[in-house]
Write a protein that binds this DNA or RNA. Structure first.
Lengths: 242, 242
DNA sequence: CGCTCGTTTGAATTCAATCAACACCAGTGG
DNA sequence: CCACTGGTGTTGATTGAATTCAAACGAGCG
């Protein structure tokens, strides 16, 4: 059962820019359908082209990059509202993979129509560029975190980011937010070993700042975490939803 | 003395996509002038808006991000052909600074005309998006390097990248390429301490792989460096020049 | 019941950070 | 003219944060 873009629940959230009905109906035409994938599915594969773009409707995933020596970097966690696969459409192929960490529902767009967006809807093309730039911005922050912060600072930074984003897409329940990753995923995202990640998580738990178990993450003292990370906690910028 | 875009020496290089004379003359209109800055100048400042976009014509710089604890991440080194300041035009402000490491000549564009590009020249808008995406791609690689590689691997990776790019913009002289940075800059780019960077550089020098002194970098065994870094050495993708 | 997967904990090791000096050079000012 | 200073690079010694190694535990599953 496909939801029309105009009634997409994500679109109602204040995180996402209000669009004119004209813009929405254009996106509607651009939309090829919906798709559900199970946890563990590889949605996009590093090194291969893709004829599709996706907007995440629900569920979570991660972008990963494989090294030849077997190590792996988690580039970012993917949340509802994120656009994935654009890189393959712009360059000839993906330079990272995208894996589903939970069951995910995806909105599918045809890559072939991408140029139409640029040709006939410059404002939406601008939005696309904005989204890529926003992702670039995030990677700059992540690079700074991995390059300059200690283990406890990195993990605190990550949890603040995740909490903020989850709050903005209405994922906060009273007992926490769904966080369907393994400790290894977080370790690979932050450039830490699994063991050290585990021990650092234990420290945060002891200090009553964060509780993460059974796929649920509960952040109890956001400001304290931000203080540890040495970061500002501003409101999220409104973003376009494709 | 301002060079018309059509006779821009960068544009003749095979690294940059051939453009139609129509496209070039559009860029020409978009161009507001040229500008020269001395080494050490801050071209763009983190947290502040900018009414200008620049394409680097010559010289080198770096994007940096400041942490509140005094540490600093060098996000990337900036080379001729790179576009800087787009982020400030898309978001409301820069989220990193750009500093000149040597004297630089810059091609200046007015931010206010950016929307015109999207409106009237969708192919150039596409190029802009491509550039941002390419930068995002690079940051993903850098994140992977800092997150997963050892010190000697990181430095080797960086030198391979730098050598490739320098070669593509005709910066290779018989004695090496101009590399006007301090060891501290490289250290901050790779998430290493100055001392450890220095010692690792000494190792590479002993192994006769890289010689860097007095602002000149000479890479003698590119393949060996790439082998150490565990990376592929493919040809650079052709890129648009704004 | 045995098996796998993810988490947890302890111990040993190591890579890289920090601390501390010194060398070198270009300015700069007495 | 020369002592002094600040910036950059170099080197050795020490420390420490994080990795690696190893083992065990619990949950879910065929």
């Amino acid at each position: 059962m496909v939801v029309p873009c105009s009634r997409c629940p994500l679109r109602q959230l204040p995180l996402f820019r209000k669009m004119t009905s004209d813009e929405v109906s254009f996106m509607e035409k651009f939309k090829a359908g919906e798709m559900t994938v199970e946890a563990g599915t590889q949605i996009l594969t590093e090194g291969s082209g893709s004829s599709q773009l996706y907007t995440v409707l629900s569920g979570m995933g991660m972008r990963t990059k494989q090294l030849s020596n077997g190590r792996r970097q988690v580039i970012s966690f993917v949340f509802p509202g994120d656009l994935i696969g654009l890189q393959a459409s712009l360059m000839s192929e993906m330079e990272h993979s995208v894996d589903a960490a939970s069951r995910m529902r995806l909105c599918v767009f045809n890559r072939s129509e991408l140029y139409q967006v640029f040709k006939s809807h410059p404002d939406r093309a601008f939005d696309l560029t904005w989204l890529v730039s926003s992702e670039e911005h995030f990677l700059g922050e992540a690079l700074t975190t991995v390059g300059q912060r200690s283990a406890i600072e990195r993990i605190s930074w990550a949890f603040v980011k995740i909490h903020q984003r989850a709050a903005a897409i209405d994922l906060l329940e009273e007992n926490g937010l769904p966080f369907p990753y393994r400790q290894q995923d977080l370790a690979d995202a932050l450039g830490l070993s699994l063991v050290h990640t585990n021990k650092t998580l234990a420290k945060l738990r002891e200090r009553q700042l964060v509780f993460w178990s059974e796929g649920t993450l509960r952040v109890t003292k956001l400001e304290e975490l931000a203080r540890i990370a040495g970061m500002e906690i501003g409101p999220l910028r409104q973003r376009p939803l494709m």
